[in-house]
Amino acid sequence: MTYHIIVSFAKDRAYEFKSASGEVSVTTQEEARRWLDKEFADLKCEITSPTGKILIIDKLLAVARTVGESRFSQENEWARQYARNVALTLGRDLVRVDVEHMRLGY
């Protein structure tokens, strides 16, 4: 299986990351969630939620928004790791992280 993660900052500014299942399976879903939690905390991401709950989807979007487009456009190891952890956390082989509209698509 190939995992395909697209991080989009605008209609014409999308960055695609593909990983084979062997690359993704070196990490567990729990480790992927911990990585995202750590990035969320280290980046001091903020989410205003009327209920006070922060969902994993909120964290995925906030981390992408906070690091910004330049980190993804460089297609560096951090961006590839983000994409792998998104795939593992959500358990999906195709995910679109729409930063502009702050939503995820499958």
Results as ranks from 00 to 15, higher is better:
Met1Asn: 15
His4Trp: 11
His4Asp: 08
Ile6Asp: 07
Phe9His: 10
Phe9Lys: 06
Phe9Leu: 08
Phe9Ser: 05
Ala10Met: 14
Asp12Cys: 08
Arg13Ala: 15
Ala14Tyr: 05
Ala14Glu: 13
Tyr15Ser: 03
Glu16Ala: 10
Glu16Val: 09
Ser19Asp: 13
Ser21Trp: 12
Gly22His: 10
Ser25Asn: 07
Thr28Pro: 00
Arg33Phe: 14
Trp35Ile: 09
Leu36Glu: 03
Leu36Thr: 01
Asp37Val: 03
Lys38Phe: 03
Glu39Gln: 12
Phe40Cys: 08
Phe40Ser: 01
Phe40His: 07
Ala41Met: 06
Leu43Phe: 12
Glu46Pro: 03
Thr48Gln: 14
Ser49Asn: 14
Thr51Met: 14
Lys53Gly: 11
Lys53Ile: 14
Ile56Met: 08
Asp58Thr: 02
Leu60Gly: 00
Leu60Ala: 05
Ala64Ser: 02
Arg65Ser: 13
Thr66Val: 10
Val67Leu: 04
Gly68Ala: 06
Ser70Ala: 11
Phe72Asp: 00
Gln74His: 14
Gln74Ile: 13
Gln74Asn: 15
Arg80Pro: 05
Gln81Gly: 06
Tyr82His: 06
Tyr82Pro: 02
Tyr82Asn: 04
Ala83Val: 08
Asn85Lys: 02
Leu88His: 08
Thr89Lys: 00
Leu90Pro: 00
Gly91Ile: 08
Glu100Val: 14
Leu104Ala: 07
Gly105Lys: 11
Tyr106Gln: 14
